[in-house]
Amino acid sequence: MNTATTHFQDALQRSQQRKQLYLGLALLTVALLAPFVAYPVFLMKLLCFALFACAFNLLLGYVGLLSFGHAAFLGTGGYITGWLLTRYSSLTPELGILGGTLAATLLGLLFGVLAIRRQGIYFAMITLALAQLTFFIYLQAPFTGGENGLHGVPRGQLFGLLDLKNDLAMYYFVLAVFLFGYLLIQRTVNSPFGQILRAIRENEPRALSLGYNVNAYKLLAFVISAGLAGLAGATKTVVFQFASLTDAHWHMSGEVILMTLLGGVGTLLGPVLGSSLVVWLHHALGGSVLGSWMSVILGSIFVLCVLLFRAGIVGYLQKFVQRNLR
């Protein structure tokens, strides 16, 4: 009985893993071929926001923590990387990105230590307040260029070898960064640590009564999320050679919530799809007469999502597949 059941579980796990692998390979092929069909800079923007939304979803979807200040990490990654690369011209882009990511990780640790003990709306409010504080620092600080933003960040040469001024080279580097972040999140969710996170999301007092220091687990998840959001911002700055206040503004914290909910909170691919749709909407409507209605359109989508599509697009697809293909 014992071994039969565990064997059954193993087999089930393996068949699921195989399906996931096929889906992953198909998506990877699409991603590898995409720059020959679509504009690479646009694709890079998609990937950066996808990573940002995935990082956010690690918290909201897998720990149940709503951070309303994730723009601070995106912005910090961008500004610190931009500043490092403009100030020290001998730095290679990957080191600049590493610096920006580390800065966002440390900021995440600081935010986390201050906010993690609070629950629900209080947690959201503290992260919002801290992010606003960060925003005003970037508005005033001399190195950010204030409202004009930080311009002229060199793309440079990756590891001193590969010239990133070539959009195609840049694209594959961004894809590699995105894959690193995505796979790290996938692993985190499916790790011993991820099991404890699930338990905390399901029933926090019970996890505590089983001897787990829940705040420490939440804090680590928060720091990983902040670091990856910073990585997204840092990479984006190198792509666009520019860091601006938009990335640190609270609108961005709100938009990442929309991206995640639209695609499907608590699913791995949901935020990728959701962020792509939102970025594409901005792109498609930006030039048209509807451009000035952007906020209204996004707001309506948000309302519809919350009222009708709680599981998001990928969440619904998953349910559909489970119901019909089992």
Binding site: L184, S191, I196, Y217
Partner: peptide, 20 residues
Amino acid sequence: VALQHQLGTSFHFWKSASSL
């Protein structure tokens, strides 16, 4: 989840859950 203490890997986010 309750047994996981024993392994001492509860903070290991880089390890596969199959180790459990």
